[in-house]
Every structure is written in C-alpha cells, then in structure tokens.
Design a protein around this nucleic acid. Structure first.
Lengths: 230, 230
DNA sequence: CCAAAAGTGTTCCACCTACACCCATGG
DNA sequence: CCATGGGTGTAGGTGGAACACTTTTGG
C-alpha cells in the first residue's frame, strides 16, 4: 500500500449488431485526440471515481454513440504495461449486443463520430483494440452455441430465417434448415405470433418472438440451451 | 484524460487444490494489516507499475504463499466503488489450479500465514472475496464439463478413481463408473503407465497420465472435450 | 409460369444410459 | 475368508444427421 500507483483504469465496449442483409457489424468511434488521433477505436474511456464499471461503460456509450444496449457482459481485462503508449491504462472490456431497432447512433455530446462497420471490413484500430475485438468475436461465437444470445441481435419479432442466417453467417458453417428449426422449436422457447413478414418475393414468413420467461424457467429446471454444428 | 483518478488496481487469486481424501481446497492467507486485519483473504495485492497482470498474480502468490501453479487464467474483474472500505480498488481476479505435489506453501517472505482450507469449511473472508470465490467455484464446475482441466488438479500419474472422485465431489453428482471410464477412454487422451498404486486394501490401481500433446492435436482437429451428467 | 424464399417428415445410425458381477490385494 | 476398492460388457432407447419436395408469394 506504500507505493503510489499511476495506473489508470478504463472501460471499452465491443458492441455487435446484426442485420440479415449486411451481416454482423461492430460499433466504432473516431478518436478526436492523441494518441491515435483520427483512428477508429472501441467506444470507452476512463472510469470515474464513484461509478461502477458497468455504469462507466453505459455512460461512455451514451456519450460517444447514444446507443442503447440489449445485452451487456464483461469480456476480459487487458492490462499489458505497454498497451497505451503514454501512461499505463488497464482496460476492462465489455461485450454488448444491440437489436436492429436500436441501431441509431444519436448525435453524441462529445462531437465524436460513431459508425457501424461490417465485421468483414473493419479499419485499423487504435491501441490493442483489434485484440479486444478478436476476443469478443470468439466469445460471440462461443456463446451462440450454448446460450440463446442470438435473440438479442434480432428484432423482438423475427422470421425464422433471420435466426438461420445469423447462425450460419457468424459461425461460418452450413446448417440443415430442417434440423435447425426442429431443434430450436423443441426447446419451446419461441412463441409464434400471428404476424407475417415478406421481403421482396417469396412466401411470407411467420414471425416469432423469444419467450424470455419460459427460458428462465427452463434454465432453472436444469435445461441447457445448446446448438451444435457438424 | 483531464480528471485525475485515485482508483487502484489489484489482483487476487483463487487457487484450488484437490486430494481424493480431503476433496477440494482453496489457498488463503491471513491478513496482517488493516482493513480486515486477521481475516482470511485471497492471496493478492496491488499491481506494480511495470508488470503485467499475470506477473502480478504470480509474484504475489510467490511472496505470500510460495506456491507454484499448474494452471492460471483470468476469472473476472470486480470493480464496485465500495468493495474496499478505504480507497477504491479494482480487483482483477484469477483462477488457478495446483497439483497435490505442489501443495507445499514454503515460508513466505512477507511473514503472512498461508493455509489450505477445505472448500466445505472456509472462514469469513475479507472484502468481497467470498463473492470472488463463488465465481471461481462456478467457473471450476463449468470448466470441468467442457475442458480437460481436472487433470491439472491431479498428480502427473493418477489412478482412474481419482478422476472419478474429483468429478463426483466437485460437481456433486453421481456418475456411472463404467460409462464415465468408457467416455474418457474413448477420447484417447489418457496414457496407461505400467505402474500401479494401492491405498490401504483393495486391488491396486493402474496409473494413467494425461497426454497433453495428443489433446492439443485433437483440439486443433476440431475435437471438443465434454463430460455430461444426468 | 418462373423465381425466390418458407415450410415440412422419415429413416438410419451413433452414442448415451442403465445395469451387476468378478478381480486383486490386505488383514 | 472377509473387506475394500478396481475393473469390465451388453442391450435398449434417444437424439442427431442426412436427405428433397411442396407452398406461397411477386414479377
């Protein structure tokens, strides 16, 4: 306790969004200050004295991007001494998901630009943010298989094909549509609505809704969500 | 970047050990200073300016307990503003495993007491360390099912029954000995040795060894370790 | 009537589950 | 010879994998 630390603590957020046409996207901001001025970076910043880490993430996201999250969890803490070229900054990174209807990045108070980038085409990132992003991508792929987290990337009501596309595009594996649907349906965590949606031509698709209550109940009863691919 | 932070950053380690007779244990130290003087706590301490977080954990463990780890990974970062009653301290916690032959806690330089406690009988812990411990227990149970991590709690060479007892006692579920053995064996990640061990009476047990290379190779080929219970 | 996307059932096989007795040693 | 823990096989059931055609709409 005797030596004074000069380490600072920040939070950074990897926020994913998904649309069936554009695929997976990630939310980035353009830095207005050195170091890495004009580089794209993960939204984030220093933690204030009296706020929790989660509060810090939500505040920074609000300030820098105006976004509202649908899911948030801690990802990993990156603390290498040289990850920030100036001072030592430890970053507690978070993993967030946003539904398409919450995509809009309102004008931010900080006058920083916030923009969605396709995951297939991200710019050079500041600091070690590429490493953080890679960790988050891994986490996303991992979680898709054993947690019903994909629903937090879709609209409240979605056609079944959106779920298929989400899985195939993120996991980069083919699935058997019949088996996939059978499996998901067997869990009993999707509610049919009486609505339909149609994009362009083709048969209109029935819309479904994820039943959070039912899932919570099943989970408590020992049920484990799991989707495997070949 | 303008406001000065007074947040400090520490690391804490939840180190598990296992013996077939005594079951799961955890390594604790007795605090010599306030706050929580004379309370038992997780080994750990403030991160130094120039060291990585992992180095900090290993250094603190060495100083306070003299222990050598067989496995280490980051667990979770606890950062509530009031978790330390004096200053704000953020704790990056780690999860460690030690084989029985590395149990000895050599005399520490800090003159702190280090002791193994049965997981079934841990004392009141300082700070929010009970919460950290609970998180680690959850992680351990989770990892046992989908990673061959139990082997890092056993001796290099172990009888099959040790593995059985490890799983049953940590997961608190009964297993079918035949099916369990069949499953593990089918993975082909255990090597038979030609040695036997005998505790008291009963038929001597053949000793096995975990084949790390083979597991790494299998993993690379897409193999996923998994043990399920009813 | 053609193109596009949604929707749907059955068979086969692999793997999991349930289950009980014999073996090798010490006392 | 008894107690203790180690070691083993089989049959039945369940769930996953493979597989192709019909339906509804727009153009």
């Amino acid at each position: 306790m005797s030596t004074q630390q000069h380490i600072r603590i920040a939070v950074d957020a990897v926020v994913f969004g998904y649309e069936s046409q554009k695929g997976l996207s990630i939310l980035l901001i353009k830095r207005g200050i050195e170091p890495f001025r004009d580089y794209w970076a993960l939204p984030g910043g220093l933690v204030l004295e009296e706020e929790s880490l989660e509060q810090a993430v939500l505040r920074e996201l609000q300030e820098e991007t105006g976004i509202t999250l649908d899911y948030l969890e801690q990802l990993y803490t990156f603390g290498e001494p040289k990850r920030d070229p100036r001072n030592r900054v430890i970053s507690v990174s978070y993993f967030g998901l946003v539904r398409p209807n919450h995509f809009d990045t309102k004008a931010s108070t900080d006058a920083v630009e916030a923009e969605w980038f396709s995951i297939r085409n991200t710019p050079n990132l500041a600091f070690d943010h590429q490493k953080i992003l890679d960790t988050a991508k891994e986490r996303l792929r991992g979680k898709l298989s054993y947690q019903p987290i994909g629903f937090d990337l879709l609209s409240e009501e979605f056609p079944f094909s959106d779920l298929e596309h989400l899985y195939t595009s993120i996991l980069e594996k083919d699935i058997d549509r019949r088996n996939f649907r059978k499996k998901i349906m067997s869990f009993g965590i999707l509610e049919e609505t009486s609505k339909f949606r149609q994009e362009g031509s083709g048969r209109p698709a029935k819309l479904f809704r994820f039943n959070t209550k039912k899932y919570k109940a099943l989970e408590k009863a020992g049920f484990h969500f799991e989707i495997k691919f070949v």
